[in-house]
Write a protein that binds this DNA or RNA. Structure first.
Length: 683
DNA sequence: GCGATCAGCT
DNA sequence: CACAGCTGATCGC
């Protein structure tokens, strides 16, 4: 529950997610998402009076949040005072003091937060520095690296302060299963696409309604919303209750899904980032200061700030050093065609920054023969000229020393995490980075050279990422195939009402190794519940990924989703095949799988069937077959992809062909020879 | 009557 | 259970 007071130290004239007390007098309001604990005071009389008196004050939010807000008649008075800002679109806003006429401009960028429909983080850039307000967020590990607007060139922007969702920033919530994998962060932009999955028809097999207190309810021939099986057959219901706190409270490690009753299960699930996800986010952002938005019970703000402190860059480096200007550009070196060791080591600027290297796309597995080879001083001239046509006024100005340094960047940017190496190469890589990125401190050098070098960097990065992507796909395919061989999700065994056999329990306990000390649920683990069901985290992340119906957003909150096998033909149930339906904006506290009705299979052996629009199919990747929307995918393959989404890998490109070893070798050779390699899309 | 706050509940 | 949000009771304006 957010305890953020509404104001940030750097920009105290704006209010975010709080609209009471002094916040009423803010020059602008920001709403990160439509949850009540972030809307305090938003319809209070004081604020209504302010709106009537002010000509300039506005509420800024995402288009989806605006839509949701205005759906509620109680907030409709905002209609003429609310401004929707497109996600990932830097927008300048003038903050005007209507009493004095004083004006301050800031640039705000909305970044998808993955918490609920329309939820965003706010990135503010202005005279008092760059600050990030996260609101509530759930971002998978590594996702921050793909947020371009948090980066300048290939490096993370300097974030002075971060105001952070620390809901689960506690080792008890060390790891929370990933959500159903989606390809894009901005999935909520298309609300009609989500709405098409919804119906008010109670006879559908997926219900979002409150869960009864106990299993007794299900023995009656009625669902919580009142619907009954037409032919009078008894209901066969499985309920899954998405929980996070419950798992955090376990004294032992548990599975991600634990059986809690005859037909009830707890699935570990969260709309907030886990400890490791927040830690990954913070480590990448590396802000100078971090402030918690959420203070857990029994803790103080100071406690949490202390926990956050090790992740702040002010911890190891002084703030002053971060702002150290670059100094004048050494133009003479820029136009040199020759290179010496001293050139490359000295760099292009009189002084160098000490900004730690940040990877935009870290990858633990990939090696980069491309950059390793191109760091050679024998680099062919063609390596320089392959971007020439993209920069008319460049005139071959990039020295080999620049390229050499740049290639060190390249190599490292895709290398494994190794802080020692980073420190060792700081000076060299920074000088290169300043050259190619042309960051804000580089005010004295030629724009044309700067932009040309940027293009050069872009070209090299694209080539590098292409190779990395190809390698990743090959490795992923291999690992997925391994998984599919050995760890096929056993839906049949999961949804069976019978307790585990001794051998099943024994097998799973053998695999329980707790090295973290956290109680976070594991794939196969020990449990304090004797009726535990063992299921992979991939499965649970899909099975629990259900949410609240938009039309009920303001009314009674449905917290149960009932899934029955009584379905239309397109939702037909079949063993071994499982489509995943995306209802990501629903937010139930319970999911009930209800397989009442007639099917062609015995009820308890049925697989629950969904529709899929997002899951990638590994086999399709391998065969380049086109993945159509609404495609039907075998669950074991879609879950493999879901697992991948949690890794620090570049997501595989659908429709692309995984290269064979020989092809890769050929690619490397061509790249090393300075040829331009263009990714071809095969559909 | 309405809003703020809290307890209790899901 | 702290999520997030509802209902109802109570108090104050």
């Amino acid at each position: 529950m957010s305890c953020f007071e509404g104001r940030m130290k750097e920009y105290p004239t704006i209010s975010i997610d709080r609209y009471d007390k002094e916040n009423v007098n803010a020059r602008a309001y920001f709403l990160s998402h439509c949850h009540k604990d972030h809307m305090k005071g938003l319809r209070a009389p004081a604020l209504k009076r302010r709106l009537k008196c002010s000509l300039t004050v506005r509420l800024y939010c995402s288009p989806v949040t605006k839509e949701l807000l205005l759906t509620n008649p109680r907030y409709r008075f905002w209609e003429n005072h609310i401004v929707a800002i497109e996600v990932e679109t830097p927008t300048q806003i003038s903050l005007i003091d209507e009493a004095t006429g004083e004006k301050e401009d800031i640039v705000v960028t909305l970044l998808p937060a993955g918490h609920c429909p329309g939820s965003v983080m706010f990135l503010f850039e202005g005279s008092n520095g760059t600050v990030l307000y996260t609101g509530d967020f759930r971002l998978a590990k590594g996702e921050v690296t793909r947020m371009e607007l948090l980066h300048s060139g290939s490096r993370i922007k300097y974030i002075k302060s971060i105001y952070l969702d620390t809901t689960f920033f506690d080792p008890r919530f060390y790891q929370i299963p990933d959500r159903v994998h989606v390809r894009y962060l901005d999935m909520f932009r298309n609300m009609p696409d989500i709405l098409q999955h919804l119906t008010t028809n109670r006879e559908t097999q997926i219900h979002a309604c409150r869960h009864p207190k106990d299993d007794e309810f299900f023995r009656g021939n009625r669902l919580p919303c009142g619907i009954i099986a037409k032919d009078g057959t008894p209901l066969k219901i499985i309920s899954i209750k998405p929980s996070t706190m419950w798992f955090g409270e376990r004294t032992k490690k548990t599975n991600v899904i634990v059986r809690t009753g005859a037909s009830s299960y707890r699935a570990c699930f969260s709309f907030h980032s886990s400890y490791t996800e927040v830690r990954d986010f913070l480590m990448h952002i590396s802000p100078a200061h971090a402030y918690p938005n959420v203070i857990p019970m029994g803790k103080t703000t100071e406690d949490i700030i202390e926990i956050l402190q090790p992740f702040c860059r002010s911890n190891s480096r002084t703030e002053e050093s971060m702002y150290k200007p670059l100094g004048p550009l050494k133009r003479a070196k820029m136009i040199s065609y020759t290179t010496t060791d001293s050139d490359s080591e000295e760099g292009l600027f009189e002084e160098t920054l000490t900004i730690p290297w940040r990877r935009k796309i870290p990858n633990e597995k990939s090696n980069l023969p491309l950059c390793a080879e191109t760091t050679s001083d024998n680099l062919p001239k063609s390596q320089i000229s392959f971007c020439e046509d993209t920069a008319a006024d460049y005139s071959m100005a990039a020295s080999l020393s620049t390229l050499k340094n740049f290639c060190i960047d390249c190599e490292e940017s895709n290398d494994d995490d190794d802080e020692e190496e980073e420190e060792d190469e700081d000076t060299v890589e920074c000088s290169a980075d300043q050259t190619v990125n042309g960051g804000k401190p580089c005010v004295s050098h030629s724009h044309s050279v700067d932009s040309s070098l940027k293009k050069l960097e872009t070209c090299c990065n694209e080539a590098t990422e292409e190779i990395t992507s190809q390698q990743n796909q090959a490795e992923k395919l291999k690992s997925d195939l391994d998984i599919s061989k050995s760890e096929l999700p056993m839906w049949e065994s999961f949804f069976k009402p019978d307790p585990l056999t001794d051998s099943e329990q024994e097998d799973s306990q053998k695999q329980c190794v707790d090295l973290t000390g956290s109680q976070s649920p594991n794939l196969f683990s020990d449990t304090d519940n004797e009726e535990c069901i063992y299921i992979s985290s991939q499965n649970s992340s899909q099975s629990t990924h259900i949410s609240e119906q938009g039309s009920e957003c303001w009314g009674s909150q449905p917290d149960t989703v009932l899934i029955s096998s009584q379905e239309r033909k397109e939702h037909s149930v079949s063993a071994g095949q499982c489509n995943v339906k995306f209802c990501d904006f629903l937010k139930p506290q319970e999911i009930v799988l209800n397989n009442f009705g007639k099917t062609n299979l015995e009820g308890r052996e049925q697989m629950i069937s969904f529709k899929s629009t997002q899951c990638l199919l590994i086999e399709d990747l391998a065969t380049s077959s086109k993945i159509a929307a609404e495609n039907t995918v075998p669950v074991q393959q879609s879950t493999c992809d879901s697992q991948d989404s949690s890794d620090f890998e570049i997501p595989s490109t659908p429709d692309s062909e995984v290269p064979q070893e020989e092809q890769l070798k050929d690619l490397y050779k061509r790249l090393a020879a300075g040829e331009m390699v263009i990714a071809k899309k095969s559909i």
